[in-house]
Design a protein around this nucleic acid. Structure first.
Lengths: 214, 214
DNA sequence: AGACTCGTGTTACCGCAAGTAACCAGCAGG
DNA sequence: CCTGCTGGTTACTTGCGGTAACACGAGTCT
């Protein structure tokens, strides 16, 4: 078996892997994250063991699946962040992009945030609190990078940027999660209110007379 | 069997239930959220079926367990929020209380945020994105109430307060989760940086010269 | 040609956890 | 003595993740 053959086999394997991921995607989007390996294998027209050959175990498959979607989402977020010119507009555009994404495909969202857990501990033994939802972490780190690169934040800008990155992402996530479940207002209004929060309106607001202060 | 007997039996059942929850708590804290019903039953000195008699199914037990811890955490947060006098101090104290709690008992934290899922759909069929972690939602709603009560926010204060409530809680959660996993700085610094974010420092920061604007 | 060895696939199994059915013991009260 | 209730058990079913062992086809080496 010469090298060109190995080559073609490797790419064939990758092709196969992609197909399997497509199938897994379909069934996960249909049945939710608790889809069984049997179901996925069936959808792909094969049986369990070859799934295991390709992905090791369930969390391997889920990681691969999550990576695809996470990459895609991050790309659209980056794009949204780089279009407008005013800072407030950038922030609002990014929030909008995120919310539009989760609104358009809640199943994907649910899967990404809630990867059926058990973790399997990629490497280290402990991993407290890591709760295996890498999407939030990746978004947080990404945003932290942008903040640290582009803003003048004084001495400990490094730490500050990371805290802010994760904090803002968390804000977006929790608000989006709640909004998606209850739909209490329009997307525009939600975005405006979140941006207001980041713009310090909480700190600036007046105490309501007669009530205990905040 | 007269009514007083029924009474004593009911309280006895509740007593038993409490004991079972204690046992479940111990084993969940020891083995993590993937603790088996068998293990919990064993810890309580009994066998599975009576666990099922008391809690219906696994998620029933987990809900009961989560409620206890959630109530406790919320109580300490409320206390922290009502002690100081300056608004900034209130915010920082609350953040501190939350972070101290998750730092002190990461297992509890992990369990609350990551309830081994499967949900079982309390009532409705759909429940997208509900991801069965009621702690965040409850904290968000609670905070929203406080904000709406105490702050003068103009016409749509209702909507605004809820968005902010969930947003702030999400910020706290994501930052805390990241911090707990990586421990990049002290708790004090984290709290300060988060409060700075809420105080609008992101909006006020200067662009770094030479870099693309944000 | 025949033996070798991959890559791909299958069937059939193991172990384990959730959840349930059926049975059992003690004790009230007619 | 029988009846019924309450708290308990044993033993089962079902379903899933994961694996072992085997089978077939095609290219490769001698």
């Amino acid at each position: 078996m010469d090298t060109s053959q190995r080559q073609v086999q490797r790419t064939a394997a990758e092709q196969r892997r992609r197909e399997l991921l497509e199938a897994a995607d379909r069934v996960v989007l249909r049945d939710g994250p608790e889809a069984s390996m049997n179901a996925i294998a069936a959808e792909a027209g094969i049986t369990k063991p070859i799934l295991y050959r390709h992905f090791g175990d369930k969390s391997g498959l889920y990681r691969a699946l999550a990576k695809r979607h996470t990459d895609a989402l991050l790309a659209t977020l980056r794009a949204a962040l780089d279009k407008p010119n005013d800072r407030r507009d950038r922030v609002e555009a990014t929030l909008h992009a995120y919310l539009a994404a989760i609104e358009a495909r809640p199943q994907v969202y649910r899967f990404l945030m809630h990867p059926a857990e058990d973790a399997a501990d990629g490497e280290k033994g402990f991993d407290f609190g890591g709760h295996s939802a890498p999407l939030l972490r990746r978004m947080g780190e990404e945003l932290a990078k942008v903040i640290a690169e582009r803003l003048e934040l004084g001495p400990d800008s490094e730490a500050l940027a990371r805290v802010w990155g994760h904090g803002i992402v968390g804000m977006m996530h929790a608000a989006g999660d709640w909004w998606l479940a209850e739909r209490p207002t329009s997307r525009d209004e939600l975005v405006r209110h979140l941006a207001d929060l980041l713009w310090g309106r909480l700190a600036a607001a007046a105490d309501r007379p007669g009530a205990p202060a905040l």
